[in-house]
Structure formats: C-alpha cells, structure tokens
C-alpha cells in the first residue's frame, strides 16, 4: 500500500469516527430538551436557557409541620429572600420575596402547578415577566435527621442578565439566598425562633 492509499484510508476512518461520534451524541438524552427543567437534579446547573440552582436542609419535624410553617407562619415570610411563599388566601399563587422580584423587570406572578401531599409542591411563573422561573420544594425522609427539604429553582434570566458572568452571579446569589431561606425555616421550626446575635430588638 502506498502513501496515497494510507492517506485515503486514514481520512475515511477519521470521517467515519467523527460521524459515529455525532450519531452517538445525538442519541443521548439531552437535558435541555426537558420540558420541566426544575424537576432534574440541580447539579446539572443548566437546561438550555435556564440556570438551575437550589439548596437542601434537613429539618426535625413532620412533612405537615414543614409545609404548615411555609404556608402559614407570617413571621417567616418577611425573612425570606428568594423562596416564594403563599399569597394570602389565593391557594394556587405564591408571592415572590423582594430579592426574587428584583430579578424580573416587571411584576412576577407565580402559580402552583403540582401539589403532592407531604411530598412535593412545584410552581412556575406566568405573565410577561422577563425572568421565567420554575421551582419546586420536595420533602423526603432522612431518618433520624428528620425530613430533607430540597428547593430547586430553574430561572431563565432577563435579557440583560444573559451575559454569562452576570447570569452566574445571579445564580450564585439565588443559591445562597435559597440556602439562607431554608435555614431560617429550619431554625423557626426546630428552635422556635430565628437566631440573631443582635443585642436589641430594634436592631434585630
């Protein structure tokens, strides 16, 4: 076999390998084709245009007590940064806390889309808000440590935030805020109060 044949067969083999690779890649399930981004594990971080983030804590209480605190404890709501909470008596609507509202350029409406008793509540934003958002709060048994409470939120950021760095910063703030929110809820349920080092109530 001369040198020209080697080149010819080599080129064919390379092209065949590349084509096989493309076919193999195409056959794999892709996260960004998922129609409900927030239901996947948050370590994926991204679903197409959506940034996925979240937080988890374990709380020593029953699932009902945890949901009850989130839905009915008015002392919790003013402390929340990003975790949406029930809006008065309108059963299927959640109210976005201030930090989450600030992410959208127009008022954000959030509607509960799935509710499985003692297990899961899922929501998504509606309307013309630029920041489209899906989220869910899932409860699962964690043995003697209580109930694992996981919140995952998938957010398609507003146009101005789509530059990658801004988007990453937004996701980081969201993740930290959700963790803080869950920890405040844990404190309120387990200890009956939210810890503070302030020395006077007017500064608390």
């Amino acid at each position: 076999m001369n040198l020209a044949n080697w080149a010819r067969y080599g080129l064919a083999a390379t092209l065949a390998t590349a084509a096989g690779g493309v076919l193999f890649y195409k056959r794999q399930p892709h996260a960004n084709r998922d129609a409900a981004p927030a239901r996947s594990a948050r370590h994926v971080r991204r679903f197409g245009d959506y940034r996925v983030t979240g937080a988890t804590v374990s709380i020593r209480a029953t699932a009902d007590q945890i949901i009850d605190c989130w839905q009915n404890d008015a002392t919790l709501w003013p402390q929340l940064e990003y975790l949406p909470f029930p809006e008065g008596n309108q059963d299927d609507l959640l109210l976005p806390p201030a930090e989450l509202r600030a992410m959208a350029s127009v008022p954000m409406r959030i509607r509960i889309v799935t509710r499985r008793e003692g297990e899961l509540i899922a929501w998504r934003s509606e309307g013309e808000g630029q920041a489209d958002m899906h989220g869910r709060l899932r409860l699962s048994d964690n043995g003697s440590k209580g109930i694992a409470v996981e919140v995952i939120m998938a957010v398609r950021p507003p146009h101005f935030a789509s530059a990658l760095k801004t988007e990453a910063m937004m996701a980081e703030a969201l993740e930290l805020g959700l963790l803080r929110d869950l920890r405040r809820m844990k404190m309120l349920i387990e200890a009956g109060e939210i810890a503070t080092a302030k020395m006077r109530p007017d500064a608390a």
Binding site: R60, K145, L176, R180, K186, M187, A191
Partner: peptide, 26 residues
C-alpha cells in the same frame, strides 16, 4: 445551642445547626 436540632438531640451541642445566625454562616 438550640436544644432541638439533630446535633443537640445527640448531645453534640457545639455542633448545633441553629445557633449561628444565617447571615454569619457563609
């Protein structure tokens, strides 16, 4: 310590989950 979290229930009081204010935890 708070006396009610998982760590306190095991008497690991210096590992209490709830006694450090959230904004100071990071």
């Amino acid at each position: 310590f708070c006396g009610h979290c998982f760590q306190c229930s095991e008497q690991r009081y210096s590992a209490c989950d709830n006694s450090c204010p959230v904004e100071e935890q990071e």
